[in-house]
Simulated assay, not measured.
Amino acid sequence: MKAFLPFCGAVLVSLCSIAGAADDDGLSEQIRQLKSEALNLNRDLTLLEQELLYASPQTSIFVSVDVGTPIRLVDINLTIDGDHVGYHFYSDQEFEALTKGGIQRLYTGNLTSGRHVMEATITGYDPLGKDYQKTTSYNFT
Rank of each mutant, 00 (worst) to 15 (best):
V11Q: 06
V13I: 11
V13D: 09
S14N: 14
S14A: 12
S17W: 10
I18T: 14
I18A: 14
G20C: 14
G20N: 12
D23A: 13
D23P: 04
D24S: 15
D25L: 15
D25H: 13
D25N: 15
D25A: 15
G26D: 15
G26I: 14
G26H: 08
L27E: 15
S28Q: 05
S28I: 01
S28K: 15
E29L: 13
E29H: 04
E29I: 09
I31Q: 00
I31A: 02
R32Y: 14
Q33F: 15
L34E: 04
K35Y: 10
S36H: 11
E37F: 06
E37C: 05
L39K: 12
L39R: 08
N40G: 13
L41D: 04
N42F: 07
T46G: 11
T46Y: 09
L47Y: 12
L48G: 13
L48F: 09
E49V: 04
Q50M: 15
L52I: 14
L53V: 07
A55L: 15
S56C: 12
S56R: 11
S56D: 11
P57E: 13
P57I: 07
P57G: 10
S60K: 10
S60F: 06
I61M: 06
F62I: 12
V63A: 06
S64C: 04
V65Y: 00
V65E: 02
D66T: 07
V67I: 04
G68Y: 04
G68T: 03
T69C: 09
T69I: 14
T69S: 15
I71C: 01
R72Y: 09
L73Y: 01
L73W: 03
I76G: 00
I76H: 02
I76R: 00
N77Y: 08
T79C: 03
I80E: 00
D81P: 05
D81M: 03
G82C: 04
D83L: 05
H84W: 13
V85D: 01
G86S: 10
Y87E: 03
Y87P: 06
H88I: 06
F89H: 15
F89N: 08
S91I: 03
D92R: 10
D92M: 10
D92I: 02
Q93T: 08
Q93L: 09
E94I: 03
E94L: 12
E94C: 09
F95A: 11
L98F: 03
L98S: 00
T99V: 05
K100Y: 14
K100W: 09
K100A: 03
K100L: 13
G101S: 03
G101L: 03
G102T: 07
G102M: 12
I103A: 10
Q104H: 08
Q104K: 12
R105W: 02
R105G: 08
L106W: 00
Y107I: 01
Y107V: 04
T108N: 06
N110W: 08
L111C: 02
L111M: 01
